[in-house]
Amino acid sequence: MNTPLLHASSLVLRYGSTTALAGVDLVIQEGESVAIMGASGSGKTSLLHCLSGILRPDGGFVRFAGPTGTVDLSTLSDGERSRLRREAFGFVFQQGLLVPELTAVENAALPLLLSGYPRADAEARAAAWLAALGLRGLEARRIGELSGGQAQRVAIARAQVGGATLIFADEPTGALDSATSVDVMDALLRSTTGQGHTLVVVTHDEKVAARCSRIVRLTDGQVVSDSAGAASSRSTVPAPGAFAGPAAASTTTTAIAHVPTTDGPAFGGAGWESGR
């Protein structure tokens, strides 16, 4: 295989006297869906935060193969990592954590606005994402007017609207009932691995994990098992391209979504339009 998308080696993370990560090695290839499982306090969130550059590990490194070359996350400044998170990575948290006074479409468009994209275009693109995730007609609703599952889909749209091809999700279904969990997980998988993107998801839910192509189990900050998930045959996951969303232009976005070098939006509007 070629260079892995994400390569973590001997990650160590301590909080005072607690060792949250005790030497984790993990290699993630493009297009994988990796479920990170483990008991509460086993270091799942810590691992996710190190992989995504939210936290700087105390030991080891994380290398991310961006389109412009491989970067070592711990050598980046806070500002550069912030930008990397904004433009190359997408995040879905347990409780949406959307801006409550904004509408669904404005929330989804937020990363584009932050990248300096014109508002009308940003909202059009965000609306296309919402529609693709089954939220057509709910664009103008405020977050308080959405159900938990709908809010989570808005979060999924927000995570990817900027062209991110690597999505991190920390217990995205943790606050949902089981039926809604299935729907949200469907939406998440279809919109990510469904079009060749990569998903790293922390979960407690065996059913959620079973739908991923790979399951990594942590105990006391160490990887104790790393196995293929039920979905590794890709029988239950739609094939790449099957997701009829706005990111059908994934080739465009993959090529341009990257880290430090340009100042403009992380994707080309024209390219995206023509890719539809």
Binding site: S52, R85, F93, Q95, L97, V99, L110, P111
Partner: peptide, 16 residues
């Protein structure tokens, strides 16, 4: 605070 922390993680600058 939860919202601000999450926005920071998503990459929103503090200045914004």
């Amino acid at each position: 605070r939860d919202l601000y922390v999450s926005l920071d993680r998503v990459g929103m600058p503090v200045s914004t």
